[in-house]
């Protein structure tokens, strides 16, 4: 089954029962129809928000976006062909409740794992893309995420096209222990090989990109980019507060904070994403000559 099918099914799923709105629901924002922005508190139509790529119409707050929405928004229509979609996690450590949690997330997110990979084009440029989805196990990286990203990098190498990754992850997946940790090394050695062969790597960090993912492939782009307001961190804010007992700045570990400290090439609004990435891809197109 292709990823697309999963989602269309999800969208057209009919409710099997009638719903009676509760008092609370009546007085509050109707769920689904309207959405309230957590930043500016303004209310807008969910449909309009969705049309605006989940960017608040008033203040520009970037709402979370799932893998399917990103493919629809950034990849040229009809060009996306998913690869390795059938790969699923095992339970190598026999970790308690892990398989049940995976199954639950598969149902909830309609995804097989926390990353979707495939071949497609963006602004007419062919590429291999990996899109992480934080609705599956917080986007954490276990063996499958590491393997799918590595296979995607190898595919980009084989096809001689750029590798673009949208990251969203809480870090390495605890339930697979050191195997998860080693995926950081696996993806990084694959990127090194690809890079040495002249491959172009673009990393777009989205909210949140932390821990083992920010400390591996997310930071290894030729271009490291981020969406506005995205949390990008190695260690969690609470851990740091406990260890240093010092007040942290308001914008600590946001994309803006990283840009200020020289860790990012640029912050790009979702609304400009296709145009800006296309520009980079275009400049990297071989054969550019002085007119």
């Amino acid at each position: 089954m292709a990823l697309k099918d999963l989602f269309t099914k999800n969208q057209t799923k009919k409710k099997k029962y009638a719903t009676i709105p509760t008092e609370a629901a009546k007085s509050d924002v109707p769920e689904g129809i309207m959405t309230k922005c957590p930043t500016c508190k303004k209310i807008m139509y969910s449909k309009e928000l969705s049309k605006n790529l989940m960017v608040c119409l008033h203040c520009g707050h970037h709402f979370p976006m799932n893998a399917k929405e990103r493919i629809d928004s950034f990849i040229d229509e009809g060009s996306f062909e998913e690869i390795n979609e059938n790969m699923i996690s095992k339970n190598p450590l026999n970790f308690p409740d892990y398989l049940e949690k995976l199954e639950k997330d598969r149902q909830k997110s309609q995804l097989n794992e926390a990353v979707v990979t495939g071949i497609g084009s963006l602004g007419g440029h062919k590429l291999v893309v990996a899109i992480m989805d934080s609705s599956f196990r917080m986007g954490s990286m276990g063996s499958v995420v590491g393997e799918k990203i590595t296979l995607a990098i190898e595919k980009a190498d084989e096809l001689g096209v750029p590798f673009v990754i949208f990251t969203a992850s809480g870090g390495a997946r605890m339930q697979e222990g050191a195997l998860s940790l080693m995926q950081m090394a696996k993806t990084s050695v694959a990127l090194k090989k690809f890079s040495d062969n002249g491959g172009l790597i673009i990393s777009i960090m989205t909210h949140p990109t932390t821990g083992g993912v920010s400390a591996s492939f997310a930071s290894l782009g030729d271009y490291n980019l981020a969406e506005p307001g995205a949390l990008i961190a190695f260690a969690g804010r609470r851990v740091i507060e406990q260890s240093i007992r010092e007040e942290l700045p308001e914008d600590f570990q946001t994309a803006e904070f990283l840009l200020k400290h020289g860790q990012l090439d640029a912050i790009i609004s979702r609304l400009d994403m296709v145009e800006k990435i296309s520009t980079i891809l275009d400049i990297h197109q071989p054969g550019g000559e002085l007119a």
Binding site: I88, T150, K186
Partner: peptide, 8 residues
């Protein structure tokens, strides 16, 4: 490193 990981 390429060979590390378990999946189905």
């Amino acid at each position: 490193f390429r060979s590390i990981g378990e999946f189905a």
